[in-house]
Design a protein around this nucleic acid. Structure first.
Length: 578
DNA sequence: CCTTCACTAAACATGG
DNA sequence: CCCATGTTTAGTGAAG
């Protein structure tokens, strides 16, 4: 039972962690580009491998933490924790070596601390991209393909009882559609939205969409050239196709699992799936293992959709969110959803889980402009961005923001000016925007931070899921911060301490806590940036955010409980808290 | 029903 | 003049 709980936790954390990592790396690229619109990722190097390794170590951190928490009460027996951590790390390193040696696929389920199947099941599209990079980096693909373990179609069927979504293991003798488009999914390229996207499923937004490639191609001709030269029918491409099959299969399995979980949750909550609002459409999204397949019917209406657009939303990549967290479920429709703020939906978590989805699907993100801007800024290396960099972040992270630019850019500027929490700083290189975290927190209703009734609700029932999700997201993000912060990589106890500081809120505050090298200051004072600061007056101030210790206590209380079914990796619909 | 919030649109100012 | 940036106001709809 404990093992099951831990495994489930691994899934959750792995998903979050990897997504967040991707997010961060993207941001760093954006921070450097300074106005130019260039995606600079796509390098395949040992760094990628190291990246994966770090991610998995992070999973270990979380697992170990949970084990410690559950068995020994939180905060005690740090020595045992560290020993377990080291043990897990060693196992993970073995696992990585196996990946390298066997072309990523020959693992026996018992090898390594986390079987690759578990990882794959937990993988969000970002993970898969990472996976592909690793595959591409394996030079001995020829050996790998001779290796019998490469036959991916046979080594995963034991993981669950879901067998409906079998994918034919046959290797097509022609270039396959993009993995995200899935092997068995008919291509829907008739969209008039983006001709270059429609013209080839492996080409979009000026880059090659071959898994793990992302090579920049100026036009279709160049792309075709690239495709024929780099992704010709050879052993490596064949192996990648096989892996992609596996990926699709795993995604379907995971989708089925999540769907079942959702059904169980709804059953538990006495909700009928057919209820018109607010769940029926998300149910379609989540419950249909067939969403991926029947995507050609068009995007489900329940998905957030661009309200001002007459164009049919398209999903250039069909990977969809492997796990659409409920934060995107409870607020379908326009971006105007206070929930994400009011109930402290961890935007970082949501983005982490569905990062690839938002990048490629023309779906409006379920966050307010303010929260998105804040996230973009906090994600940047210096936690400051020029307006143009914010624009770039939007367009890079969300396919939706690649059009209607006038509208949303105006909205961005409007938000920057309107909200007191965004502080314009005259820098050496011009004006940059920063986030005054204190002001941002002030904006937030005190529901999650102090209301005794809310805390009570959270402890007693549904709220646990929400809190737990926030906590897990915070864990994921703080782990990421550890990865990004060399000085803290080895400081696992520091990590766990930092993790315990959060659990209430948008996880970005965690980023700050960790990034500021352990400092628990709630936010950066704009004066730190110091030259020229425009002070804005925001008309209505909400109640002061009194961050209670009691909430943290409740977190620890909850963590000490057995995992059982409460290990939901998504938040329950916040409406249920009302 | 009222208020608050978020989004959209637009006008306007400023500086390069 | 154009464009990017920044500020401000007004209208609208959703939600509390």
């Amino acid at each position: 039972m404990m093992v099951e709980s831990a495994t489930e936790t691994i899934r959750t954390t792995s998903s979050n962690q990897n997504g967040v990592s991707s997010l961060s790396s993207q941001s760093e690229g954006g921070g450097r580009e300074g106005g130019s619109n260039g995606d600079t990722n796509g390098e395949i190097s040992p760094v990628d491998l190291l990246h994966l390794q770090q991610q998995q170590v992070c999973v270990c951190v979380f697992v170990c933490l949970c084990v410690c928490v559950c068995q020994q009460q939180l905060g005690s027996k740090q020595l045992a924790f560290q020993q377990q951590l080291i043990q897990m790390q060693q196992l993970q390193q073995q696992h990585i070596l196996n990946l390298q040696r066997q072309g990523l696929v020959g693992l026996q389920p018992g090898q390594g601390a986390v079987p690759i199947q578990s990882l794959q099941q937990a993988m969000c599209p970002t993970d898969l991209q990472q996976l592909w990079k690793d595959v591409a980096s394996v030079q001995s693909a020829e050996e790998a393909i001779k290796h019998e373990g490469l036959d991916l179609s046979t080594n995963s069927s034991n993981s669950t009882s879901y067998s409906a979504s079998k994918v034919s293991p046959q290797i097509p003798h022609h270039p396959l559609p993009n993995g995200q488009n899935s092997v068995h999914t008919p291509k829907r390229d008739s969209s008039t939205h983006e001709e270059h996207t429609a013209s080839h499923p492996l080409y979009g937004h000026g880059e090659c969409k071959w898994p793990g490639c992302e090579a920049l191609c100026e036009d279709m001709g160049q792309f075709i050239k690239h495709l024929n030269s780099e992704h010709a029918l050879d052993d490596r491409s064949t192996a990648q196709c096989r892996v992609q099959m596996q990926v699709v299969q795993q995604l379907e399995i995971q989708l089925a699992k999540e769907s079942e979980r959702l059904q169980a949750m709804m059953t538990h909550l006495h909700m009928r799936p057919s209820e018109p609002k607010p769940f029926n459409q998300p149910l379609n999204l989540a419950s249909s293992g067939s969403l991926l397949k029947r995507d050609s019917e068009g995007f489900p209406e329940g998905l957030p959709h661009p309200p001002t657009s007459a164009a049919t939303p398209i999903t250039p990549l069909r990977q969809g969110p492997s796990v659409i967290s409920s934060s995107s479920l409870h607020g379908v429709g326009p971006i105007r959803r206070r929930n994400s703020d009011k109930f402290c939906t961890p935007i970082a978590s949501e983005l982490a889980q569905n990062c690839e989805f938002y990048k490629n699907a023309d779906v409006r993100p379920p966050f307010t402009y303010a929260s998105l801007i804040r996230h973009a800024i906090l994600e940047s290396p210096d936690r400051q961005l020029t307006l143009n960099e914010i624009y770039n972040w939007f367009t890079r992270m969300f396919a939706y923001f690649r059009r209607n630019t006038a509208t949303w850019k105006n909205a961005v500027r409007h938000n920057l000016s309107l909200h007191k929490c965004f502080v314009r700083v005259e820098n050496v290189k011009g004006a940059v925007w920063t986030v005054d975290e204190v002001e941002y927190q002030k904006r937030r209703p005190p529901k999650m931070t102090g209301s005794p009734t809310l805390v009570k609700n959270m402890i007693s029932g549904l709220g646990f899921g929400s809190l737990n999700a926030s906590y897990q997201a915070a864990l994921a993000e703080s782990s990421l911060s550890l990865l990004n912060s060399p000085t803290l990589v080895n400081n696992s106890t520091g990590a766990s301490l930092n993790m315990l500081h959060v659990g209430h809120d948008d996880v970005s505050s965690t980023v700050e806590q960790v990034n500021s090298n352990g400092s628990c200051s709630p936010g950066l004072s704009p004066q730190q940036y110091g030259h020229h600061v425009h002070v804005k007056e925001e008309p209505a101030e909400m109640e002061e955010d009194s961050r209670p210790v009691s909430l943290i206590a409740s977190v620890t209380q909850n963590l000490s409980m057995p995992g059982d079914e409460r290990d939901m990796d998504e938040e329950l619909p916040t409406e249920e808290l009302e």
